[in-house]
Design a protein around this nucleic acid. Sequence first.
DNA 1: TGCATTTTTGCAAGCGCTTGTAAAACCAAT
DNA 2: ATTGGTTTTACAAGCGCTTGCAAAAATGCA
Lengths: 344, 344
Amino acid sequence: MAEETNKKKRMPTIFDIARESGFSYSTVSRTLSGFEFVKPSTREKIVEAAERLGYVPNQQARSLAGGPSHLIGVLVPTLTNDYIIQILQGIDDELTRSSYNLILYTTNRHQGTEATYVATIMNGAADGLLLVAPFITDSYLEALNERDFPYVLIDQDYEAEDSMVVKATNREGAYIATQYLIKMGHSRIGFIAGLPQLNSAIERLAGFREALSDHGIPFREEYVVPGNFEMRGGYRATRELLARSDVPTAIFAANDLSALGAIEAIRERGLRIPLDISILGFDDIPQAAVAYPKLTTVRQPLNQMGREAVNLLLKRLQNPDMDMVKLTLNTQLIIRDSCDIPFD
Amino acid sequence: MAEETNKKKRMPTIFDIARESGFSYSTVSRTLSGFEFVKPSTREKIVEAAERLGYVPNQQARSLAGGPSHLIGVLVPTLTNDYIIQILQGIDDELTRSSYNLILYTTNRHQGTEATYVATIMNGAADGLLLVAPFITDSYLEALNERDFPYVLIDQDYEAEDSMVVKATNREGAYIATQYLIKMGHSRIGFIAGLPQLNSAIERLAGFREALSDHGIPFREEYVVPGNFEMRGGYRATRELLARSDVPTAIFAANDLSALGAIEAIRERGLRIPLDISILGFDDIPQAAVAYPKLTTVRQPLNQMGREAVNLLLKRLQNPDMDMVKLTLNTQLIIRDSCDIPFD
DNA sequence: TGCATTTTTGCAAGCGCTTGTAAAACCAAT
DNA sequence: ATTGGTTTTACAAGCGCTTGCAAAAATGCA
C-alpha cells in the first residue's frame, strides 16, 4: 500500500531513440556517432528523437565497445604549485577546444602511485596520457610503449626512450640568467637546487655551472644548496646560505617558489632585496609578478607547453604511426626588480 | 613474409586470471571486488595470479555492469583563479584519500556547457558531482534531482532547491571587514562588486551595506562599481573610482583578484597603499600574502570547503537516503598591510 | 521492365565486468 | 552413513554501445 516513490529516471539509450524514431538501434548508433551512409531523412528523424529525449551517449559503453572515450588522462605531481597549474590551464584550454575531457590524477609524488595510475589509464580509462613532470620510472614507460599507448611527457625528458616530449630550454635559460647576474658584477652566487629526479632541475644547475665557468668564476660546491622546488625548501636553503661567513651577493633559485621562500628568509634576516642581495627565479608563475619586490625570473612558456602537448597527443591519436616528436620551447629572461648590482 | 610487428599487447582481463588460477571468472570478479565468501586459499591463488599478470580492472566495464566508476565529476568555472584552485586542492586531497579519481570539467562560464557536462556526468561518467561556484540553472539541477544523482554545491546556494551545499559566511565576513574599515575612520568606502550571478557576490555586497547602515554611514550607489572577480575587472573598476572628485579613502574588493587589480590601478595613479588609500580583499588566495603590500583580506577556508564537500558527497554515495546538509564555514578577517587610517 | 549495383538498414556478437540464481562441496549432527 | 544447513563456485544474462556481415531498398543502365 505504501506509495513506493521509486523515482530515479533512467537515462535514454539508443534503444529508446530507436523505438521513438522507428529505426533499428544500429542505424541510430551509426547516425549518432558521426557519418555513415544514412539517408538524410532518416538522420533527421533520429537526431530529432535524440534531442527530444535528451539523449547523451554513455561514454563508458561507447569506449567499452571499442570507440574512443574522449577522455585524456593527465598525471600531475601536485596541485599546490602554480607552475603545474599554468601547464594544466594550457592543457585544459586546448582540450576544451577539441571536445576532449580531462581526467586528473595527482600523484603527490608518492612512490608507486604513478605506475598504478598509468596502468588504470591504459586500461581503458582514457585514450591518451599527458605526464607533467613525472618521476620517470622505466616500469610504466615500458608498459606504455609495449601497449603502444599514446602519451606525451611534459617538462621531463627520458633520453633513452623514444617518447613524445614537450619541454623548455632549461639549460639555456639558466645560463642567460646566471650570465645576467655575473655581468651585473656578482661573483658570489648561491644556487638553490631543485629535485634531482627531475631533468629540468639538472639542466638548470648545468646551465648555471656552465655560465660560471664560461666567465671564469670558480664553481663553489658550498654555494649549491638542496631545495625541493617548494617555498619551504627555498626558505631553508636560504637560511643555510645566509649562515655562511661569506654570504652570496645573489641567489639563483631553481624555481620561483624557491625564490619566494628565499625572499622570506632574507627579509626575516633584515636584509633588503635587491640592495643587499639579489634574487632570481625560474618559471615566471603569476605570483612572481605580484611579489615584492617583483621577481626577476626566467619565463617558461608553461601555458603553451600544455597546449603543444595536447596538440601532439591529439595528432598522435589521429595518426598512430606518426613520428615521435620532441618539442623544445624557448625560455626568456624577465627582468623585474629583484636583482641589482652587488653592494660590496 | 613481411614480419608484421603487431605489438599492442592486450590488457589482462578477469578471464585471463580465471584461466591462470583455475577458478571461474565470477569467482575472480567477486574475489577482486571486495569481500564475498571466498575460501582463503582460493583468494590467495587468485590474487597471486592477478598480480603476476599485472591485472587492473577495467573501470568502464565495471561501471557499465553496475558497479561504481570510482570517479567524481568536478565542475569548475575556470582554472585561472587561485580561489578555484584552492578548493580544487581540497577536493583532490580528500578524494585521493578515498581512492576516488577526479574527472574535471572546466566550463569557462560558457553558456550551456554546464548543462551539457552535467548530462554527461549523470550518464555514467561519474558516481557523483561537485559543482564549484556554478551559474545555477534550474535546468540541470532539476535533472540531477529527478535522477536522484548525488551532488554537492560549493560556494553557491540555491535556496529553492533541496541540495547539499558547502559555503562560507560571506555576508558576515564582508560585514566584519567593512566594520574594520569604518572603525579605522573610513567613511568613503568604494566597493568593487563581483559577478551578480553568484550568491557569494550578492551576500558580500549585502554585508557591506549592512555594516555601513549599522554604523550610520549612508550607502552611496556611485561607490559600488561592477567587477567580475578578475584582476582586469578590479583594475577597471578602480580607475573608475579614482576618476571621481571625491575619491574613496578605502576600497573593499569582492575578491582578492579584484583587489590585486585595484592595487595596480592605484599604483599606476601614483598613490600609495595604504597611506593614500586602503585596500581590502576577500578569499585570501596565496597571492594575497606575497603581494605588495600584503593584502588585508577576509579568509575563506577554501581548502576545507573542498574537503567537506567531498566528505558530504562520499557519505551520500554510501547512504543515498541521508538527509540533505547545508554546511556553512566561517570566514575570518586577516589583517595585513593594505589598510590604514585615512589620510584626510 | 529487368538485372546488376550501390546505398541503407538490421541482426548478431562481443567489449570486460557484476550479480541473481542454482548447483556443488563442505560441515556437523543425527 | 545420512540429513540439513552453510559456504563456495559456476553459469547465464545483461549493462549501452560499436561493427562486421548480410539482407533489403533504392538506383542506374540496357
